[in-house]
């Protein structure tokens, strides 16, 4: 019986310790020379709220949080957006950190609409891009981030999608994610950003 309590104690403590390194999320393959190739966000090119081209080079040597939304979304988007603002606030002084919100409804979310949206959020727009572009390319990009996003006429607002927020490292690998509708999960995500930042300390 005493051992049982010790076991319980051990389990409790093992759960509460902070992992020192973040995992690599997604499919991975082992190359012939034995090195592991992790899932990587492929090349992309979209337009931001200031009508500027944003591509992989825009995130050179940066880590970033990514999500997918649309302005007319009547379901989970405002909740997730509020948590994205919280993440942005927590990294206010982190020059290595950016955020990116992709619309999945580019027909309605033109760069002009995204500009008004970003202006009204009152955020630092040099660090947070709101991206629009070709619908197919945006939905394909959601797949690359493992975010479910589909056009569905029966869903509220015409799109069905998840409120996941993902953390991408400087090499384009997904290192953490959270449910953007769950503030507690986002608290853990903000801790994960610190863990990832520690990898770049010299």
């Amino acid at each position: 019986m005493k051992n049982f309590y010790l076991l319980l104690l051990a389990i409790t403590f093992s759960c509460s310790t902070q992992p020192k390194e973040l995992p690599f999320i997604g499919f991975q393959e082992t190359l012939d020379d034995g090195t592991i190739k992790y899932h990587t966000i492929p090349p992309f090119s979209f337009v931001n709220q200031d009508s500027l081209k944003i591509d992989n080079d825009s995130f050179k040597n940066k880590i970033y949080a990514a999500d997918f939304f649309f302005t007319s979304c009547p379901s989970i988007c405002p909740k997730v957006m509020k948590q994205m603002v919280r993440i942005a606030d927590s990294q206010e002084n982190n020059e290595k950190f950016k955020l990116v919100s992709h619309t999945i409804d580019p027909k309605r979310d033109t760069h002009e609409v995204l500009k008004i949206y970003a202006d009204n959020l009152g955020i630092d727009q040099s660090k947070w891009y709101f991206l629009t572009g070709q619908k197919d390319e945006l939905l394909d990009m959601a797949d690359e981030y493992y975010v479910a996003a589909y056009e569905d006429p029966t869903a509220p607002g015409g799109f069905d999608h998840s409120g996941k927020i993902l953390l991408i490292d400087t090499k384009g690998h997904i290192r953490a994610f959270c449910d953007g509708t769950d503030p507690d999960d986002v608290t853990q995500f903000i801790k994960d950003i610190d863990v990832l930042m520690a990898e770049y300390d010299d």
Partner: peptide, 14 residues
């Protein structure tokens, strides 16, 4: 989902 559990919303849009 828009006005938040605590009624704080995300003003001025929500």
């Amino acid at each position: 989902s828009c006005h938040m559990e605590d009624g704080s919303g995300l003003p001025p849009m929500y």
